[in-house]
Design a protein around this nucleic acid. Structure first.
Length: 455
RNA sequence: GUGGUUGUAGCUCAGUUGGUUAGAGUGCCUGAUUGUGGUUCAGGAGGUCGCCGGUUCGAGACCGGUCUUCCACCCCA
């Protein structure tokens, strides 16, 4: 019995129409990456499990797709762990490879491994699929593409400024004019924890704080209390809930609040430099918003944190990034600061689709189709097809001498704008009949004139 | 990983308290029209009702499991 075909949960096939749109997206982003001086690299789709584990937190470890060892993996497994049925501990015993979870950690691995061949600061971009064993939702897949641009080997805050401009450039070029680039700094969050005397609860505090616009002030405080943050500490944090005004005004208030904290003050300084520079240089469309509740992002961020949100569309973030001072440190290369951003290609696709922002892709498909009346006519047509192709026009001959209606229907469905008809009459006169499928008009053109035929 | 939701023709969806042979629109194929598509008309094909099991004289409908879809958590692009 034939088995019903299907693909795993959270994965997708891409049709020709979808690929045309996806390629448009890829190309727009690539063009901007190159314009900003980034060079492309690729890394394997799977890495050593040890390279990935422990880099994304406990939750991340769980979401990594592990690859079973080849051969009789159970025989080689640790018998004690096997008997205990402890999946977490057993994993390293039966799996030593895993699909990549993002592009940043493989990049860090790449930098350390090719350290001697790289000229720093190293600016690379990478567009490849990543995999997460997550439960799918809208705009959330188990296989999806990330488009990353990162710089390593420079601590300059001008890099942050450039990345904000890069975001603005890409989204403007895509016609997505209503985006918010949210920015925060890990040092500010550390400073807040510092002045509230809860440095050990920094992560719990930021996770709760991050939910502010979703669940509201009271519920955030509730969660903080549950995590063991005292009411005293919460009252110190209180000003964060009331932070409003322009970016500059927010920074001023933060400066006062965090004055007792060295790291907090540094965070305010850094944000000040970046925001001022961006404001002086100006952005085409995007808005830069200081958002102190922005806490997400991976465990390895140490400075700036970015997140991009599309307004007018209900969708998770369409981009994110930040600075990580010590990412290569875990692979043995210290003092190598990096900063980077990521574009969520699949989500941007959904947003553009919803807002109808994809341009018509007329010139990608076949522009001229030749109707096939038989072998003799077909040979005559193939010569004309070659002439048109040399002329830079996408042309094809219908392969079979099927019924006229079928051939015309094919051209119509594929949205081919011109159909050429060649029968005995045209062959005799060294002509072709060109029909405009939109208007229905048709006229005869000399074979020789196809060299200069214009769509 | 937790809780909920969805699945009927290629697609979008009807289908009454469980009752004979499961419908519509659209798309597809054929013809009207043997060198003219998109409009019109006539005809035709297409379904293990997601899958497995159970209850029942009888299940598309009820129950359990499983897969899938979407949603809320968690987390994230």
């Amino acid at each position: 019995m034939a088995q019903k075909p299907g693909i795993p949960k959270g994965t997708r096939d891409f049709s020709p129409v979808e690929m045309a749109k996806r390629n448009y997206l890829f190309n727009t982003i690539k063009t901007s990456f190159q314009k900003f001086g980034f060079a492309q690299i690729e890394t394997p789709s799977f890495e050593n499990l040890s390279t990935l584990m422990g880099k994304y937190g406990e939750e991340g470890d769980r979401l990594i797709f592990k690859i079973l060892n080849s051969g009789d993996y159970l025989k080689k497994a640790d018998q004690t762990l096997l008997n205990d049925k402890n999946s977490t501990k057993l994993t390293s015993s039966i799996s030593e490879k895993a699909l990549r979870y993002d592009l940043t950690v493989p990049f860090a691995r790449y930098v350390v491994q090719h350290n001697n061949d790289i000229t720093f600061p190293f600016k690379r971009y990478q567009i490849q699929p990543v995999w997460r064993a997550d439960r799918p939702q809208k705009g959330r897949f188990r296989e999806f593409f990330q488009c990353d641009a990162d710089v390593v080997g420079s601590k300059s805050l001008f890099q942050e400024v450039e990345f904000i401009q890069l975001y603005d450039e890409v989204f403007s070029n895509l016609g997505l004019n209503s985006v918010a680039i949210k920015i925060n700094n890990r040092k500010i969050l550390a400073g807040v924890a510092d002045v509230a005397n809860i440095a050990d609860l920094l992560i719990d505090m930021t996770v709760a704080l991050d939910k502010l616009d979703k669940i509201g002030e009271e519920k955030v405080k509730e969660e903080m209390r549950e995590k063991g943050i005292s009411d005293d500490a919460i009252s110190v944090i209180q000003p964060l809930f009331e932070l409003d005004g322009t970016n500059a005004e927010k920074l001023e208030k933060l400066g006062v609040m965090l004055a007792p904290s060295e790291v907090g003050t540094k965070g305010v300084e850094e944000l000040n430099i970046v925001i001022k520079a961006v404001e002086e240089l100006g952005l085409r469309n995007a808005d830069l918003e200081l958002d102190v509740t922005l806490a997400r992002g991976l465990n390895y961020y140490t400075g700036a944190i970015f997140e991009v949100q599309a307004r007018d569309v209900k969708m998770g973030s369409i981009g994110g990034g930040g600075r990580y001072d010590d990412l290569t440190g875990i692979f043995g290369l210290n003092d190598m600061s990096g900063v980077g951003i990521s574009f969520g290609l699949d989500r941007i696709y959904l947003v553009l689709d919803e807002l109808n922002l994809f341009p018509d892709s007329k010139n990608e498909g076949v522009q001229v189709m030749f109707v096939n009346f038989g072998d003799a006519e077909a040979m005559y047509c193939l010569k004309a097809v070659r002439t048109l192709r040399e002329n830079g026009i996408n042309a094809e001959l219908y392969p079979d001498s099927a019924k006229m209606k079928k051939q015309m229907n094919y051209a119509n469905k594929k949205g081919i704008p011109y159909v050429v008809l060649v029968g005995a009459e045209e062959m005799e006169a060294n002509e072709v009949t060109v029909k405009n499928m939109l208007t229905g008009d048709q006229n005869k053109i000399a074979l020789n004139d196809l060299k200069s035929f214009k769509i």
